[in-house]
Nucleic acid binder design. Structure first.
Length: 866
RNA sequence: GCCCGUGUGGUGGAAUGGUAGACACUACAGACUUAAAAUCUGUUGUCGGUAACGACGUGGGGGUUCAAGUCCCUCCACGGGCACCA
């Protein structure tokens, strides 16, 4: 498809990839303590079998930063690895009769080859997979240490059970009531599970979010919400039956205790102990509770769900309210899992309570009066704003926030209540009933109970001889694997057959990368780890905003407290990139068509097979089901790695979604050839005219208009470093385009300035190199630079005088542009004003009396106000 | 419902409060070619005008300012996240 007259990317890319691999210093951080370190990391990949173009975009961001920082003189760590445990390996085992281990390592080697095509500057010597025995051995050791520290426990609990994957899911892995991977409706089951006590860090995880200034505001907000801190009052009520007999105490938590005097009912959840008790004697209550448990948990249903309740006949008393009793309802909108599973309802100041009161005819009493002029219509809805307390006894006259503090204090003093805090965050359940994961190093002994495995027995390795021909966990039915001796009493015992959630594996992999191959990987090498951490640039998708990033933060803090490392936060800067999208094509018969089944004719998309016109849909995230995917290998084969590398960063800012298009990728391919041609054309001229010429550094020797062009190119490329720093690769590429366009013009009168032009090409090439390293290395060689590009420093543009000699001044009248003026940058107002007044286009707008006022911004603008 | 984004030509997108539309794509024209492709050179926000030029123009409305895509208020549309969290 592409002719040989062009830049030969096939040969060139292969050649330099080989050279880089052999060169000692190209991809590896040099042990240079004097240099400042820079740890660049992209979220590692699950070895599904194929590298997706979205991965390429992710890795490209990291690669540009890594190469750029290296050129800037940093000691750079840029590793790569594999998040290799997980369910798909078992599914593949089931479907294709291959062992998960073979499937995984096979995929890794396929994907490694794909990655190699792109020339990423990875330190391949540090590569590992989380299913490597020497990786998960350390993970088991960490688990035991966390157990000793009280950060791991086992409890019977209701869990999210995915009936398709036959597996437990963490709360974070349930999305809209469905399993995050299988999409099946999640069921509740009672099981014994291992938990990490992430809630012990709820406060710290929340507080230190503030210190993460290099994180997107959005991700911090999502985590903050997920941890969900609230502060309020725990208030004690007494529940009495209709005969006035005391039933039990009822604790009610509220974040708005100041509204208590407006309360008109109490509501408890269907799972509340009192509800369960009452159900035994009332069939109506039992029936209601039963109907609540049937409620679906999907988003749409929740939206539509009506607030329902049943009056239990129970009365609740609180000394704050004197003799006034509140009726106790069981309500479907009260959650047992938050607070105490009981609330007091203040219909005037809460939307849900208002809905409920309307439905059941309960009083709606205003206790917060809005400031003057704002009328409240309690018949239309609740009032959620601020104001002054009324009808609230000792709170009257205070503002709502003041009243909140006041009532908390009052209740603490009188003992009727207590200031309380709650978090939404739950402990992290990590038990998975799967084979392909890190075994939990615990042992069940009939006599001693659950005991940790001996450290000297680590790793507890996965057995290889397992079968996948029936549902459930293969470790459970392995004839011998789980049989062992109790480390404590020596009696026969059996191993825990659950394995760890794979999110555990990815919670500390960035720490392992810090150790080089020569170190003892069985232990934490603090010196190496603390040299590199924290990660300076962490790059990945927004979909990990909560799960992975929260777990990794938790692990870092837990490892700190177990004495492994001295670090509070693992990632100083986080960058979330957008997705790669593509148009979709739908055949008239309803089939989705792949991009390579389409050709475009006269602006219409035509199906190659039968010539029919195809419906072109909007650009969407690439997905196999809609066939709107492109293969990275195929793209490299047709256009070369540098074209693909350039395109994924080209048009859109990298934090936004981009659209993959044929026009876009061919555009990049054309640019690469265009730059190459520029170098070739220059080379031909240069060899003919080689003679004494000024070095371009002495810009004064150049002709005026040539000098201006030189300066313009220099200005364009000099900004590129700054643009890399702030991840504005699309603008960096625009600057490169601009520079190359100017150089094409320059080439026409370059004869007498050839050395200077050569320098200009070399400089441009250096700043392009992080994006198009193969092309740049080749150009560098062709221009006769003896030093390899990967060893070349970033140019110091400070040594060039880049100021423009003439600037264009905008001449405005009343802020409207009427003309422009060429002037020296430091021209005085008086002379410019005089010149501007004499321009006809300006003169006609200025009245005879002259301008009222003249605004002058040196070097930029002169504005006549008339 | 709440929170966070986003809104600029035919398209992707640029613009420290200071010449809106950089750069790229598409389209069109010219050069080269027997021809096509590729390449090179132009043009390409809209309306009016042969032109010079003029008017309009950054989702809508209002405001601050000599000057607003940019700041403030308000409304609309789209996208994402959370969702009965007491």
């Amino acid at each position: 498809m592409k002719t040989s007259a062009n830049y030969n990317f096939q040969a060139t890319e292969k050649k330099w990839q080989q050279v880089w691999r052999q060169s000692v210093c190209a991809n590896k951080p040099v042990a240079a303590a004097a240099k400042e370190k820079c740890y660049v990391l992209e979220m590692f990949m699950y070895p599904s079998g194929r590298v997706h173009i979205g991965h390429v975009r992710n890795f490209m961001i990291g690669d540009v930063i890594a190469r750029f920082k290296k050129a800037k003189g940093f000691d750079v760590l840029h590793p790569v690895g594999w998040d290799a445990f997980g369910l798909p390996a078992e599914n593949a085992a089931l479907a294709n009769a291959v062992h998960p281990k073979d499937w995984t390592y096979e995929n890794i080697s396929l994907m490694r080859k794909q990655l190699e095509l792109f020339g990423f500057s990875y330190d391949w010597d540090r590569e590992f997979a989380t299913c490597d025995e020497n990786y998960y051995a350390v993970q088991q050791k960490i688990f035991l240490d966390m157990y000793k520290k009280g950060l791991v426990y086992r409890k019977e609990s209701m869990v999210n059970w995915d009936p398709v994957d036959n597996c437990v899911l963490a709360n974070e892995q349930v999305i809209d009531g469905r399993g995050w991977r299988s999409g099946a409706i999640v069921e509740s089951r009672q099981l014994s599970q291992w938990f990490f006590k992430i809630t012990a860090y709820a406060n710290e995880l929340l507080k230190s979010l503030k210190s993460l200034e290099g994180w997107p505001e959005k991700v911090r907000a999502m985590q903050e919400r997920w941890i969900g801190h609230s502060r309020g009052l725990m208030l004690r009520f007494e529940a009495k039956d209709k005969d006035g007999q005391s039933l039990q105490d009822l604790s009610v938590y509220s974040t708005r205790p100041e509204t208590i005097f407006g309360a008109s009912f109490l509501a408890i959840s269907a799972q509340h102990p009192l509800a369960q008790k009452l159900a035994k004697t009332s069939s109506a209550i039992a029936e209601f509770i039963n109907s609540c448990s049937k409620n679906s948990v999907t988003t749409e249903d929740m939206d539509k769900m009506e607030k329902l309740g049943i009056d239990t006949g129970v009365q609740a008393f609180c000394s704050l309210l004197g003799d006034r009793a509140l009726p106790v309802y069981i309500a479907n909108f009260v959650l047992q899992t938050y607070g105490t599973g009981a609330i007091f309802g203040t219909p005037a100041h809460d939307t849900r309570d208002w809905d409920f009161a309307k439905k059941y005819g309960l009083p709606i009493k205003l206790v917060i009066k809005p400031s003057a002029g704002n009328d409240v219509n309690l018949q239309a809805g609740s009032y959620l704003g601020n104001g002054t307390m009324i009808d609230s006894e000792f709170l009257n006259g205070k503002t709502a926030p003041e009243a909140k503090e006041c009532i908390i204090e009052h209740c603490e003093k009188t003992g009727v209540g207590k200031a309380s805090e709650f978090y939404r965050l739950r402990d992290w359940g990590i038990s998975r009933q799967r084979y392909w994961g890190c075994p939990i190093p615990m042992i069940h002994c009939q006599k001693c109970g659950v005991v940790p495995a001996n450290e000297k027995d680590l790793p507890i390795a996965l057995p290889v001889d397992v079968t996948f021909n029936q549902p459930g966990n293969p470790l459970d039915r392995h004839p011998t694997w789980s049989k062992t001796k109790c480390p404590s009493c020596g009696a026969p015992a059996h191993r825990e057959t659950d394995t760890m959630d794979t999110f555990v594996d990815s919670s500390w992999y960035f720490i392992r990368f810090c150790q080089d191959g020569a170190s003892d990987l069985g232990k934490f090498d603090r010196k190496q780890i603390e040299r590199w951490l924290p990660v300076d640039f962490y790059i990945g998708g927004i979909e990990h905003a909560i799960l992975h990033l929260l777990y990794a933060r938790f692990f870092t803090k837990a490892l700190r407290d177990c004495g492994y490392i001295n670090l509070n936060e693992p990632f100083s800067a986080l960058f979330t990139q957008g997705m790669v999208c593509h148009k979709t094509f739908k055949h008239k018969d309803g089939r989705w068509l792949a991009p390579d089944e389409i050709e475009s004719k006269k602006g219409e998309a035509i199906c190659k097979a039968d010539g029919t016109v195809v419906d072109v849909g909007r650009s969407e995230k690439m997905s196999k089901s809609k066939k709107n995917v492109v293969s990275p290998d195929e793209m490299v084969r047709i256009y070369g790695a540098d074209s693909v590398r350039m395109f994924v960063l080209s048009d859109s800012p990298v934090d936004k979604d981009m659209e993959w298009s044929d026009e876009g990728i061919t555009g990049c391919w054309r640019f690469i050839n265009r730059f190459w041609r520029l170098v070739v054309m220059f080379g031909e001229k240069y060899s003919q005219t080689k003679k004494a010429s000024p070095s371009f550094i002495q810009l004064d020797c150049l002709k005026h208009e040539t000098k201006a062009d030189f300066k313009r190119v220099l200005r364009s490329i000099s900004q590129i470093g700054g643009l890399y720093e702030v991840f504005q690769f699309n603008r960096a590429i625009a600057a490169v385009h601009d520079a190359v366009n100017v150089m094409y013009d320059l080439l026409n009168h370059v004869e007498s300035y050839s050395d200077a032009f050569r320098d200009l090409l070399l400089l441009t090439n250096v700043v392009m190199a992080p994006i198009t390293p193969h092309l740049s290395e080749e150009v560098n060689q062709k221009l006769g630079n003896p030093k390899m590009l990967s060893e070349t420093c970033w140019p110091d543009f400070g040594r060039y005088e880049l100021k423009q000699e003439m600037v264009t001044i905008a001449v405005q009248v009343n802020g409207k542009l009427r003309a422009t003026l060429e002037a020296l940058p430091d021209a005085m107002q008086s002379e410019l004003e005089h010149a501007a007044r004499n321009i006809n286009a300006v003169k006609k707008y200025i009245p005879a009396g002259g301008a009222k006022k003249v605004i002058f911004v040196p070097g930029k603008i002169i504005n006549f106000v008339v």
